[in-house]
């Protein structure tokens, strides 16, 4: 296996400048090509900082105290040139307002901006921008000014401007926090398409009910430390999970209260499985 990991983090410890607290502490894990990995944790757990570290913004942009390594295809992110990095890894920031360059006047131009910088042919730019804007239901907004969009529309624009670059690894920090249910489904639909194209995905998300349907594994952070890196049902069945107060999918909570587990001995995390188990329990209790 050794050299085939897409992402490999080795004992990463990081503190922001002037902070005596580690935002990340001794984090190590690997992600294989094409895997989709979720990150969960409480406010301030280090989720966003980990996203910044994966893309090299920590420590290139955010200085501070840094030790350990983040490797993309075996190469230290700190050593990868900017031009190469943008095609390798893309980050959708937690705050969409920070993502917009403002260098362009319309939604369309904002999305095309990154591709122009990469010197992509005009026809291809047109086709890629159009596809992305349509997938996110922003096509009708293409001639509008990004600063006149609603919060949710702006969040979609931030996602579009990264997706259009078609990076090999996609990192999304709470991409659906301001989206309605339709927008949230669109984003997850896109994530699942990307996954089927072999793109590696890392996703911070508090909407566990959606997250568990799409991820292969979950990284669980607490106060900068990695508590677990495992399948969702194992994470949400950890005996000490309640003490961390991260919560769980609503139906997992229900099954926990009723002490209903699946055949593998874990609390169900997916909707259909939880429904099946709850129905069975209901038949049992009716009898």
């Amino acid at each position: 296996m050794g050299s085939t990991e897409k992402i490999k983090i080795e004992s990463l410890t990081y503190a922001y400048p002037f902070s005596d607290k580690n935002a990340l502490e001794n984090i190590s894990f690997s992600i294989m090509p094409g895997e989709c990995v979720g990150i969960i944790g409480r406010n301030g757990a280090g989720k966003s900082t980990l996203c910044l570290a994966l893309t090299g913004l920590v420590p290139k942009f955010f200085k501070g105290r840094y030790s350990g390594k983040v490797l993309l295809d075996g190469e230290d992110v700190r050593q990868i040139s900017y031009e190469k990095l943008v095609t390798k890894i893309g980050l959708v920031l937690q705050n969409p307002f920070s993502q917009i360059t403002g260098a362009r006047i319309t939604v369309y131009e904002e999305v095309a901006f990154g591709l122009e910088n990469l010197g992509i042919p005009r026809d291809e730019i047109k086709q890629r921008v159009e596809a992305v804007l349509k997938a996110l239901d922003l096509w009708e907004k293409r001639d509008e000014n990004p600063f006149e969009l609603s919060g949710g529309q702006l969040q979609k624009l931030a996602i579009a401007s990264v997706l259009v670059l078609q990076p090999e690894v996609l990192v999304l920090d709470e991409p659906t926090s301001q989206l309605d249910s339709g927008g949230t489904k669109e984003v997850f639909e896109i994530i699942s398409q990307m996954k089927s194209q072999g793109i590696t995905i890392v996703l911070v998300e508090h909407k566990y009910e959606m997250l568990v349907e799409y991820v292969d594994k979950i990284i669980f952070l607490q106060e900068g430390k990695m508590i677990a890196f495992d399948e969702a049902e194992k994470i949400f069945s950890l005996p000490e999970i309640d003490e961390y107060m991260v919560g769980e999918p609503i139906y997992t909570k229900l099954c926990k209260k009723l002490n209903l587990k699946n055949s593998r001995g874990y609390y169900p995390v997916k909707f259909s499985e939880a429904v099946g188990i709850l129905r069975e329990a209901r038949c049992g209790s009716d009898r």
């Binding site: 609503i250 139906y251 229900l254 209260k257 009723l258 909707f271 939880a274 429904v275 709850l278 129905r279 329990a281 209901r282 209790s285 009716d286």
Partner: peptide
Amino acid sequence: FKISSSVGTVISKLF
């Protein structure tokens, strides 16, 4: 609501 309608009335009975 989704879960109670998929499982049936029992959710509210049990929980």
